Simulated scan of single mutants.
Amino acid sequence: MTTSAHTPDFSRIPRAALPALLCAMPKAELHIHIEGSLEPELIFALAQRNGVALPYASVEALRAAYAFTDLQSFLDIYYAGASVLLHEQDFYDMAWAYFERAKADNVVHAELFFDPQTHTARNVPMATVIHGLARACADAQAKLGVSSALILCFLRHLSEAEAFDTLEAALPFREHFIGVGLDSSERGHPPEKFARVFAKCRELGLKLVAHAGEEGPPAYIESALDVLHVQRIDHGVRSIESAELMHRLAASRMPLTVCPLSNVKLCVYGDMAEHQLPALLAAGLCATVNSDDPAYFGGYMNANFLATFNALPQLGAAEAYTLAANSFEASFVDDAMKKAWTASLDQAFAQAITA
């Protein structure tokens, strides 16, 4: 955990002060699919602007369809929602809406996943996608003080060859993204499927992350580490099923980008009270809290923190601090920025003690 010489006395923070502190403390978000932040209202506004017909009669009808039984049932609606994204301004508007919510939740840094294959398959040019998102990132820094970076994700239900084609199409815009990830349907698509693509990305100096251990088994986490050589595991909650893997993750400080509301919405856990985040933290893992696809899963960063801490009374001020500090440690920024954010985290906790 990234700590400072001024780590607070957590025992002096009453339980009643915790909700406000969770909302006020600075934090980084490291697992956000920007297409998954597309709210129904904006979907309908973009559909009207672009003349796209939707299979839902209203915003309310679309929201009513958000009753997912697993990852695939969510993805079906997710891809339908993305169909309204056609022009650079659409991608800008989507990302800007997210950044405004991130600012309100005291997110100081966000590393955004984007899925170019979802768009290039609809003949939307790679340049349109990346330029729209990159422009929003620049404005978020300038106008909101929120720093950010883009991570290009390969869709794992598609082929290795298609991933290579996507990488080649994106490389002319290399200055706009810092790394690559692996998302979409986990079952039946092990990390090894993309070993050569990730090897190429590693040669190019890109940061490497991958979804593993959400619906897939602990073995997928091991493959992401040993075959893809990732620097972060996205989700990773099923590591709890392997004591050996848990020890390895703790010893290496390998970050896990955990998404609590998503895990419940997609039936990884029956309800939040079953979530294993406390066990991951107790074992010393570098776990973080993130929103995943917040428009679909019931909330952005603060909603995830509040729901998690409300359902799991064993989580207190010390764990809140650890999760925020972990998010800075796990981010792909320089040490000076991490130190500055940790100092502001200390200040937020100091204010909670004196309040």
Results as ranks from 00 to 15, higher is better:
T322H: 06
F164V: 08
C267D: 12
H131S: 14
Q231G: 15
N304I: 00
N326R: 11
E241M: 09
L22E: 11
K143N: 04
Y296G: 05
A348F: 03
L266D: 09
V268M: 07
F114V: 01
T3Y: 02
E35L: 02
H189F: 14
P172T: 05
L22N: 08
A104V: 13
P14T: 05
R63W: 04
L208T: 03
L158E: 08
F154H: 05
I353H: 00
W341Y: 12
A355E: 01
T7Y: 00
S344L: 09
S148A: 10
Q314R: 12
P191W: 10
G188A: 06
L182E: 05
E319F: 06
D139A: 10
L54Y: 03
G316I: 03
S262N: 03
A311H: 01
C153W: 04
S242A: 02
E88A: 11
L112G: 09
R122H: 06
P278G: 11
V230F: 02
L133E: 13
K103S: 14
E222F: 00
E203V: 04
A325N: 14
L323D: 10
R122V: 00
A102F: 13
I178N: 06
G205I: 05
P40K: 07
I178M: 05
A355R: 05
L46F: 01
A295R: 02
D90L: 03
L323T: 09
D9C: 04
I130E: 07
R122N: 00
W341R: 12
Q72A: 01
Q89W: 03
L306F: 01
Y321T: 06
A243G: 06
T7K: 09
A110C: 12
C286S: 13
W341P: 09
A195P: 06
V333A: 11
A138S: 15
A350S: 01
M301Y: 06
E162L: 05
D183C: 11
S147L: 02
E100A: 12
A279S: 12
P278R: 07
K338S: 14
A140H: 04
T257S: 15
C23H: 12
G145Y: 02
